[in-house]
Design a protein around this nucleic acid. Structure first.
Lengths: 202, 202
DNA sequence: ATTATCTATAGATCTATAGATAATGC
DNA sequence: ATTATCTATAGATCTATAGATAATGC
């Protein structure tokens, strides 16, 4: 039971850390602010995570688990038709999106402790997306793009839309915009028989 | 001449601030670090910019001027065929890209002093891009998208590619990827006469 | 006079270490 | 014994204010 209590405590702390990072970024997040949210002193928190960086690492690992959990078991098991739902799911969780958008932004600064994490993760995500695109659309996408060329664009759209949406949710319908982009990847001039003129969209 | 010297000093300080923000973000940038780079004490710097926030505002205003200067006179005077060169230009200036990517990332956190700036700027940029897309491609783009639907995607791709490129420049050819995206917007199933099958790309 | 800088310093923080104390689980 | 927390505190920073001093421009 001690172990269980301890695990619960750690989970509480991680949730609080996620919140505080969303509000202030990692550099701006103080251990005291996190501790206060779970009714601990800053020193009490350090009993569970001995350094600030170890807390960040735990937050990032949790995300990894969440992502790979949501998309199946192994990283890279993405499917194009599930991306839609992922984006819609994200649109209902601005807090988490804000946490990771803030961390991504910070991570490009020199020697940021999350830099390696994001660098590696994007290598994997691009590869996973390329695989998913290949499975769904084959070797040639609109514009003559290969799955490997389209993958970074897909990832970029997801990230870029998140920033625009976080800054101004009333001006940007993130899920709709993302669907628009998927539409661009679906229909193109390349596939042999000219597709029938179709009136779609709302 | 006093005025001229002073202006020079301010310009030096802004350049230094740009660098330090690129390296550590705004929250992580200390006035001392900026001051040191121009051979001033922290208090000496405050003679030119009375608060840290006023320095940030000046950095952001300078960017505004740079952007609108590069693209013509008035904001929103974008042209699609110049975006290519803009992205290529950016690819040669990782420092500036890093500064503004870091600031954008931070700006989604609560009460960040750059939040209002970015929110407003994206409204303008989306509108400008929609206008440019309309001028270039008319009312209907591939996938049946309107210029207003495509604009946030265009902006998202630019921003998103910057993050991937900053994290891992050897894995991401930002200008090439951006050209790939523009290709997606150019050719689609919609335009009347079926475009000739063309082998392009390397 | 005004402008440019500096020294001194107040007042907040922040992370992390040391070491005490209480509670829990064998 | 081990685990969970706390108090005390060291040692760094950080921003900003106050006020002195030197140099510049009328």
């Amino acid at each position: 039971m001690a172990r269980a209590r301890s695990e619960e405590r750690r989970a509480e702390i991680l949730r609080a850390a996620l919140e505080v990072i969303a509000e202030r970024g990692y550099r701006g997040a103080s251990l005291s602010a996190v501790a206060e949210r779970v009714g601990l002193t800053q020193q009490g928190l350090l009993h569970y995570f001995p350094t600030k960086e170890s807390l960040l690492v735990a937050v990032l690992e949790e995300r990894d688990q969440w992502d790979t959990g949501a998309s199946g078991r192994s990283a890279g098991a993405w499917r194009v038709d599930l991306l839609d739902s992922l984006v819609e799911y994200n649109a209902m969780r601005p807090g988490i999106v804000q946490t990771f958008s803030a961390l991504l932004g910070e991570s490009v600064t020199d020697e940021h402790p999350a830099r390696g994490f994001f660098t590696q993760r994007y290598v994997q995500v691009r590869a996973g997306m390329a695989g998913a695109l290949r499975t769904e659309y084959g070797e040639r996408l609109p514009g003559g793009l290969t799955p490997e060329q389209a993958a970074p664009l897909l990832v970029a759209v997801m990230d870029g839309l998140q920033y625009q949406w976080l800054l101004d949710p009333r001006s940007v319908d993130m899920p709709a915009a993302f669907r628009d982009f998927l539409g661009l990847l679906r229909r193109g001039p390349m596939p042999g028989p000219a597709p029938a003129e179709a009136a779609e969209n709302l």
